[in-house]
Structure formats: structure tokens, C-alpha cells
Amino acid sequence: MYIPRFLPSLTAALILSALLSACGGSDPAAPAAAETDPYAGGAAYPWTYAAPSGQLSAQRLTAALNTLSFEPLLAATNGWGPIELDHSNGEQRAGDGRTLTLGGVTYAEGFGTHAGSEMRFSLQGHNGARCTRFTSRIGVDDEVGNRGSVVFQVFLDGALAYSSGTMTGASATRNIDLDISGRGELRLVVKDAGDGINSDHADWANPQVRCENDPGADLRYSFSFPRGINARYGKTATAILRVTDEPGHTSGPVSFKLSVFNWTSPGAPPLQLIEPNRVYDATTLPAEFPVRLRLRTPFPDGFTPPTGTVEITFAANLEDRGFFKRASLNWNVLR
């Protein structure tokens, strides 16, 4: 997941202080410099993120245990620089966090945030998956010691579903385990506890959403290439794959991978998908996806490669469903 990083500048006073410290003498009898309070004067470094226009989409939540730090955010805010992925908040710069650590236990995945912060996620499962539970370990990161005082909150479809009460750096790590069945949006909030934001480094460790296949889901997706393409052997071309619901039916969000099923011309060489491991997903239908392709070369000596129209059939393999849908593309192979 990519979160844009916007870096607030240090004030001229802090820069000057750092320069003076670097130039100071090494007299061992000199008193130690007082630690600079980064929150002095009510300092804050607010950061805001919104998904780019036209790219606001649901998570690719499938029938599995989905870790949220692998999924795209819909929107987010943070009170002290950017939210950090799989690291503590650190300070106001991007990428300055440490390993997420709560009560001496480290976590490889999660979000390092700072009061006040908010993260929004969709809970729409793909391919008929129903999302049922949200779990996470929460607490004030060890990097601030016993300092900090925050309140963790979870909202489901705008309604408060969980509140931790005040937690400090001395508080034991807590576990959230919520039923999210039938809910559409998850919002994770960290507030200060009424005494300002000093040292309010708050971790969502191992945040996960569990989803399950609905065995009764009637998935009636339709896959097609409405327009053929024209290209020579060895050249890359882009075809447009269109995914719709069958008339009068709503299947919900879709997620799939493509593979080459067959082609009608016996002499046609294997087709190469330029992005063979790409996951195609859409929240709403109809949706169109560019598919980059190439007909391979070279050919054996004495072999005349066919030209003209070649019909190529693709398989759209629906994740976690164990079946696929077909789509055929007409490729006019140019001389």
C-alpha cells in the first residue's frame, strides 16, 4: 500500500538550534543540553490523505484473513506527520518510525499513528465474500516510554462500536475483536485523552479483517472484449476487458486474475501477458481494465507465421471461488 508522504518543514529556530549543537565544544565539564520538547508551543504536524480522484475503491477483501496494511486506504488523517506503514509513527518526517513495539512485543505489520488520527476502509468483500470480524492489537508504542495518553475508537458505518478508554505508555496491550457482519465501512480513530497530543504515538498492530465465502452467492459476472486489436508479432498491444453483471442481476465487487485459455489458430504462438500476476478488481460494475499483451517471436526457420484474425480465449479466475469465466478476444495479426 502506498501512502503519499507530505513532509512539514522544521522551523528556522529548530534548524538553528541543531546547527549550534553540532558546532558546540566537547568540554566534558559542560552541562548536558536540555532535551528539546518537540511539542513546545502546541506544535503539531497535521497530515491528510485522500485516495486520488477516480481511484476511490474498496479493499480487495477476499475469503481469507486480510491484513489491512496490505490494502489501500480510502482516506486518512494524522496529527504528527504521515501515518507509517508497518512502523511506529516516529516523528514528523516520513519513514522515521521504528519497529512497532507494544509492551516489549514487536509486530511486523500494522500502522503507526498519532493523535488525532483517522483511517477509513471499505468492508465490501469481493466475489461474494462476507466480512465477519475485525481484530487488532492496540497500545501506545514503547518508543515514548510511559508517556502519552490516547483513546482508540472503532466506528462501523459511522456508529461507535468500540472505545478503549484512556491508554498510556504504561498501559497493557489490548486486543480488539469485533463482529463486522453486514457492515460497509470501518473507521479507525485515535484521539488524545483531553490533555493534548504530547507523545501520543498509537499503534494498530496486526489489524486484520476476516472474510468468508458465501456458499449461496449467485455470481453472474460477464467478461468480454468488446473491441478487437490490431498488432504485429512481437509488438505490445493493449486490449480492453469489460466486466458487467448479467442483466437484472447484481453480483457485487469482483477480483480475479487472467490466464490464456486457448486460441483458434493452430499456428499461432503462445500469447504473453505482460502482467501475468496482476490482480484485477472493481468495486462497482460495469468496469473496464486495460490488458497488455504480446504475441511472441521468433519462429522456427522455415515456419511462416499466420496472419489475419486469431481468436484468443482467456480465463478470468475468480479469487477464492475455485472457478473461472471465459472471455474471447479477436486479434488481427498484421503482416
Rank of each mutant, 00 (worst) to 15 (best):
K235Y: 12
G228E: 01
L68Q: 08
T250V: 15
G81V: 03
S21E: 15
R133D: 04
G165T: 04
T166C: 07
R5V: 14
V291Y: 05
G42D: 02
E185C: 04
T309F: 10
F6Q: 12
A282M: 11
V291T: 07
Q272D: 15
G248L: 08
A205H: 05
F314G: 01
Y280R: 00
T99A: 11
S265I: 02
S53M: 15
E143C: 04
V151W: 03
L100F: 02
S164I: 00
G184N: 14
A115E: 08
A217F: 07
P38A: 04
R278T: 00
G81W: 02
W47P: 05
R321K: 10
R227Q: 13
R278N: 08
Q124W: 12
C211H: 02
P52V: 06
R120N: 13
P270M: 01
R232G: 10
G103C: 14
A34W: 09
N213P: 10
E212N: 05
F152A: 03
S149M: 11
L188P: 08
A202F: 09
D200W: 02
G95S: 13
F121P: 05
F225H: 07
A239W: 03
G97M: 09
R120V: 15
N206H: 08
L160W: 07
S265V: 11
P82Q: 14
L271R: 06
P46D: 08
L219A: 10
A327F: 11
L156S: 04
G54T: 03
N206I: 09
F6S: 12
F134I: 07
G308Y: 04
M1S: 03
V154E: 00
S328Y: 12
I197F: 00
L156K: 06
F134K: 02
D203E: 02
E71C: 14
P286T: 03
P82V: 06
I83T: 15
G25H: 15
Q92S: 04
N262S: 10
L188I: 03
E71D: 14
P38W: 00
Y233T: 02
E288S: 10
H249K: 13
G228Q: 02
G165V: 01
